[in-house]
Design a protein around this nucleic acid. Structure first.
Lengths: 148, 148
DNA sequence: TATTGTTATACTCTATAACTATA
DNA sequence: TATAGTTATAGAGTATAACAATA
């Protein structure tokens, strides 16, 4: 019987989707994100726009290329996103003085004020979507995910 | 100081993206799925096509509407997916005898043989992408995710 | 000549309405 | 008339190439 073992999976390779971390991740991620999307819709915002506001608030004046990198999107995708925030008076592009090609991105006072609300909403949404976990389990999950 | 507490978040509401399960889920899910996409690309297959093959194998002859529901996609999205599997000789639609509107979906012998390889590949990809976890952590993570 | 941001474009994924053929 | 599958279409999300202004 020892000759039937395979080095990668062993003889008991009952591979079902339920045993794969990737599929469990996908289902959980979909649920949590749908919850956030629904909550942010109240403010006519998408998760990426909220995330952009958080990053801009943490690093005011950063350049668009850097913001795009933080968001893990390509620069062209940032253009309509920033346009929307700027049109709504939540953020602004300020042209560089030394380098006139570059634009620093800032939150407006209105944007900063709204962000306070949005952060509370996001935290609440996160807890709602993971209501099946207690606090210990939630931080345990957070730690495991951050290891990946 | 007791008057400064808020019922929803408490006085220490330092909300950053790192404290949200949703963002950790998203990053982890992206990594694991990109790994799977890369491994399946070797066979010119997408994750949804692999998942469809697993479901068909578990429930041979199921109707397309049921398959779409299992995949959490809309029936129109299933059409090109199944067309591709059928063109490549991995699956087949068999028209119902009582109800000629319905089609039962089956894997071909070639599809079943390929699926054995694909399951091993998917399990390996999953372990590679979560190599930062040991077996105990991985099954702990799986349990927490399935609670959500 | 290289770089910042932008436009144009395309490809995938997703969702909905309308069509066909059967019932 | 209702249902299974399909077609057509449109909207997001994502990625690349090409362009304008500036360096």
């Amino acid at each position: 019987m020892s000759s039937t073992a395979t080095p990668s999976l062993g003889p008991h390779s009952a591979v079902t989707l339920d045993t794969l971390v990737g599929y469990a991740l996908r289902r959980a991620q979909l649920k949590v994100f749908q919850q956030l999307v629904a909550r942010l819709a109240e403010f006519d915002l998408r998760p990426a726009q909220f995330t952009a506001m958080v990053i801009i608030d943490n690093e005011p004046g950063l350049m668009q290329a850097d913001l795009a990198r933080h968001l893990a999107i390509e620069p062209p995708q940032l253009v309509p996103l920033l346009n929307k925030l700027e049109t709504r008076g939540l953020a602004e592009r300020v042209r560089g003085q030394q380098d006139k090609r570059a634009y620093g991105v800032f939150l407006s006072p209105a944007g900063q004020a709204l962000l306070v609300q949005l952060k509370a909403l996001a935290a609440e949404s996160d807890r709602e979507a993971t209501a099946a976990l207690n606090d210990a389990e939630r931080s345990q999950l957070l730690g495991l995910l951050q290891k990946i």
